[in-house]
Every structure is written in C-alpha cells, then in structure tokens.
Design a protein around this nucleic acid. Structure first.
Lengths: 341, 341
DNA sequence: ATATGAAATGTAAGCCGTTGCATTAAGTTA
DNA sequence: TAACTTAATGCAACGGCTTACATTTCATAT
C-alpha cells in the first residue's frame, strides 16, 4: 500500500524504519516511551521522507488538535489586533496554534465561522462579546467545546468572560466630559444590534448623562458601522444641527478618527470648537491630531489572560472564571471645556 | 470537557432517518442525487439531532476541506487587513472558509504556520511575498498544495504571485521627492531580511537616487521592525545628524506615522522642515496630520483577485498566473520642496 | 405484463492516525 | 541461571465520512 507519488503516511515511515506504526506514532507523541536508538532512526526516516502527520486522521483518532479558534468581528481595524497578538503568543508558548476568522459583524457569518472552527477540531474557542443566538449557545454546549468571551465583562452570561465593564468605563469617560461643563452632547455609536460592547457603551453614556440631570432624549445618537468614513459622515451630520453638540462621544477610536477627519475638513477645530472622544485606545489614538481622549483597554493583558484561561479550560476541563479588567479613561488633547459663547 | 450526550454522527442520522450513511452523505454533498422526499426527511433529522459533519473524518475521506489558509506577517497593523477582508469575502462567495494565522515576521513561525495550515487540510494557501527557505518551498511542492504569493509581484519566482512591483513603485515615489529638489534623503525601512517587499522598496529608492546622480552611500538607511514607536525612534535618530535629511522616505505608512509623531514631539514641522512619505496607503495615511504622501496599493482588488486565482488553482488544478497590479504614487500634504535656506 | 434503462439507494472498503492490551526483550535479583 | 519486573514494541480495533460499485426501485416502452 505504499504509494510513491503521494504524501507519505505513518505506514510508510513505519515500513521504511522497520518498526510498527504504533512506534512511529509514539516517537511523535510520547518520545520518552521509545528507546533512544529506535527513536533516532525513526526520526531520521521521518525527515528523509518529509513526513507530516495527517491532521484529520490525528484529530479523529486523538480527539484533540492543539488548535484554538477565534472568531472576531473584524480584522479591518486594529481593535482586536493587539489583544489577539498577545493571545496568540501565549497560546504558542503553550504549544497551541491559533486560527482566526472574521465575521464582519454579521451574526450569521459568526455562526458559520464558529461551526467551521469547531468542525475543524478546535479544542477551544475565543469569541468576542456575549451577543449571540440561542442556536449558537446550544450548539456550543452540545459540542462541549470550551469557549471564552472576551472584550466584555458580564457577570452572569452564558460564557465565562474576560474583559472590562464597557458600560462603567464609558460612564466614567462621559462624566469627565460633563464635568468640564458640556451640556450638549452628541454620540456616534457602533451598531448596537448584536454588539453588546457598543450597546453597553451607549448605556454608560446614558447613565452619566442622566445622573448629571440631563435628558438622554435630547442627546442625538447616530449608529453606524465601525469605519473611519462612517465616523466622518456621522460627525458631519451631527454638526449640521441648529445647536450642534459641543462634545461628540464616539463608540470607539475608529469612529472618533473619522470625526476628527471630518472636523478638519469642515474647518471645525478640536477641541476649541468641539471635543471628541473615542474608546479602545488603539495605537492610532495617540498619533491623531489632536491626540484622542479615550478609554484605555488593556489589550495585551486581556489577550494573555484569555489564553491562559482558555488553555486551562481545555486542558484541565475546568470551568473558566470570569475576570474583570480595568479600563481607564485616558485624557488627551481632543477633550476640553466647551467654547465660551 | 466531556459531555454526557455525545455528538451525533452520520450513522446516527442514517439510523434515525432509516436510510444508509451513504444517502445522508449525499444529501449533504450532492443533494441532486437524492430524491426530494428522502432528502427532506434526512435534513429534518439532521436538524433535529443537531448534526454537524466531523471535519477530520470528512477531510480524510474526501481529501478536500473547502478551507483556504493564509499566513500573514502580522495582524497588528492594518497593512494586510483590507486585502485580506476582500480575499475572505471572495472565498466565502465561492463556498470556502478562510483561516488566518500570523508569523510575526518570523520565518521560523511562518514555516510552522504553513505546516499547521496544510496539516489541517487547507486546500490552498495564500502567502505574503517570496522570501522563504528551500525547506518550505520543498515542503509545499511535495504536499502539492497550491499556494499563491501576494503583495509582491515577481516574474519568475517559485510561486505564482499577484501583487505590484514594490521596487518600481518606490522608485516612482522617490523620483517625485527628488524632483522637488531634495538632495538630502533619509530612509526608514522595515527589516529587509526575509522580507522581499521591504528589500525591493529600498532598491527602488536606490534606483531613483542613483539615477538622479546622487550617491546612495550618502543616504542613511535605518532598518527597524514595522511599528509606530520604531518609526518615531528612527526618525528621531535621523534628525540628530549634523546635516539632517530634508525628506524622510519610509518603507511603509506605519513607520511614516511614527515619523510624523516624532516630528510633532520634536517640534519639527512637516512638510515645512522635512518631508515624510509612506507606502501602502492604509486608511490611516489619509487622516494623519499632515496627510501622508504614499504609494497607493489596490488592497481590495489584490485580495479579490488573489482569491479568484487561488480558487482556480485549487478547483481546476491550473497553474496560477502571475499578475501585476498597478501601485500608484499618491501625493498628499506631507511632501513638499526642501526648505530654502 | 415484461423487458429495459435510469434513478435511487445500499454496501463496504478505504483514508491515517492513536491507544488499550498483548507480547517480547531487557534488566535485576536471589 | 531461573524467576520475575519493567521497558519497549507490536497488534489491531476504532473514529466518522466519502465514494466506487452493487443492488434495488421505478418509470417507460413494448
């Protein structure tokens, strides 16, 4: 059954090395069980033949793949990039491979991707946030694949999570804005449907606004997909109002970058004419002009801890502990008091 | 962890529906071969049981996975994000799933990731650029997995590629710079070792400089990993020289962003005191202050075409055609003539 | 009805590893 | 050296799916 033209199999290696397939398998998976002299010979043959284990077969036989999957809403902007990088580094240190796919913020696609990853044998899954359909949760439970939610802390959600309290963080930021005397606020939010982070952030704004004795009904909120161009457009619209806001709070840094861009184009000076804030503190935030006031998210720490937690879940079968990290307001040049008129 | 109720298999579905496993399999893979009435019943059972095909088994039996893998140098900055997004969209339209992993610009890790992806049954591979070891090329050939290189056009490279001529594009940009009268140029490049894009770009600069009758030996070139902070540091170093450059050409937009940032901190005004250019035209480039002169890369088109080409290679077994796309100089505010002194 | 070809379905042989258990070789002790 | 322990290796079942080939069913023509 040796084929000379196709990819070599365990069997080929075994035959060439004059041992059984079991021994070859052991050389690869638990080398300490094989005596040095045999092992050496087998490894030589493996090299010589350029053998690589067939993953499908291995996954099927061993029921584990040393693969962790992550489904993130987007790769387009850097929101998840840094955290994911740290996540991957940590996984790699633990001997695991990370496979990423993106859902374009579409729950339908997210579901597909989750299934694709599980079908491909992912031992564990990293997901973003908590908003997903019953079907998906059901599916995950049924498959018994450990999953962890990140970028969002939620005490009693379906999945254990590691993240920060988006609502509280945004509330703090908004309080800073209000403390400076702003009373006319505008909000540019990401699409909240199916995105608990975006929703919580708006709630946080609402909390602070209401607590300050203002009426949230008077605060214009524009929802738009996370994208610089959309942020710009929304900002433009907000500033067309008869009494435009003196502070524009954006759901994340990307939208805020768009707002700053639009401001530049409209000849509106930030923060003199209007203040702008973001959320996430991606690298971009620090190099914008003016530098963006935002909420700093501990991306790398979150990624690292997510990896550790998920690995523990996968390897020891323990239930993941939900962990809350601190996200701190980060004041920079884009926020100032309202213009005295 | 282990769940008491185990995942249903083809066999379970077959039994419940009262047909053979072959029929169930056909319902999934070639439904037209199954009579409507049977198909309907089977699909119902599938739903009811929540059956999902086991991927490993399927891959093993069918020798294809409808999965395309991509190994990119980094997810941290947006260089590959947009192109990859388009790539994924196109694949999805063709019924394929994209799995991405990142090598952190480390050839060692890249090799690992390529192997991981192939082992996991990827039907085809998207790689970035052409620099890789014999081992890897050998491995790819042996496995017979179609692979395509992107972000770099190279006529007679090992792999077919779809991309642009980094050298020529950078030469054009440099010519623009020189045409404005700059004679003191500084270069901030990415690490060229193992990165043909970075290397070609430096060559392009060299071409233009030499053609203009200047001596490349007099042009300081700093190599540093792609990262804003590194760009800033390099810029800082360049400007410390006795006769600092009047134009700093950066190997990509991320480095250029760092340069602009450093300039701001050093009180150097761009472009009055010094011009700065980038490469890639990532979204960031347009919102920096001043907007960055750069080379526009047709990210989305590249991604889309890469997908089409790779799919053709995978499905029809044809050899991929190398395609060159146009990357055009994109003049913006960060470039001007040298200060008259 | 009956023959006939096409359509639908079933049977079972792989695909390539892992691993529990059996067997053999090596090492130790009295 | 025999008896016994332990280490090293082999045997073969198993995992879930696809698909070539065999068989049955059905519709149509005679």
């Amino acid at each position: 059954m040796t084929s000379n033209r196709s990819v070599p199999t365990l069997y080929d290696v075994a035959k060439t090395a004059g041992v059984s397939t079991a021994t070859v398998s052991r050389c690869l998976n638990s080398p300490e069980q094989v005596v040095e002299h045999t092992r050496k010979r087998v490894l030589e043959v493996i090299n010589q033949l350029g053998y690589t284990p067939n993953f499908g077969a291995r996954a099927m036989a061993a029921k584990r793949t040393y693969t962790i999957g992550a489904v993130i809403p987007t790769m387009e902007n850097a929101i998840f990039a840094r955290g994911l990088q740290a996540f991957q580094e940590e996984l790699r240190a633990g001997g695991y491979t990370l496979l990423v796919s993106s859902s374009a913020y579409d729950p339908q696609i997210e579901e597909e991707q989750i299934k694709a990853l599980i079908a491909r044998g992912a031992d564990g899954l990293l997901l973003i946030g908590h908003d997903r359909t019953k079907t998906v949760s059901e599916f995950l439970r049924k498959q018994g694949t450990p999953a962890l939610a990140a970028w969002s802390y939620e005490a009693d959600a379906e999945l254990p999570s590691i993240g920060f309290d988006n609502r509280r963080a945004m509330r703090s930021l908004t309080e800073e804005v209000l403390a400076l005397g702003h009373t006319r606020i505008g909000v540019i939010s990401g699409i909240t449907d199916g995105n608990d982070r975006a929703r919580r952030r708006v709630e946080g704004i609402s909390d602070a606004v209401t607590a300050a004795g203002l009426d949230m009904a008077g605060v214009p909120v524009i929802e738009t997909p996370y994208d610089i161009a959309n942020g710009a457009e929304a900002f433009h619209n907000l500033m067309q109002a008869d009494t435009p806001p003196t502070a524009v709070i954006c759901g994340n840094d990307v939208l805020a970058a768009g707002a700053l861009k639009a401001a530049g184009e409209m000849g509106i000076e930030v923060p003199r004419d209007v203040s702008v804030t973001g959320f996430d503190d991606i690298e971009l935030a620090g190099i914008l002009t003016p530098p963006l006031t935002t909420v700093h998210v501990p991306h790398r720490e979150m990624g690292r801890r997510a990896a550790r937690t998920l690995l523990a879940m996968v390897q020891k079968g323990i239930t993941g502990q939900t962990v809350q990290l601190e996200a701190k307001v980060c004041l920079r040049g884009s926020l100032a008091g309202p213009k005295a008129d």
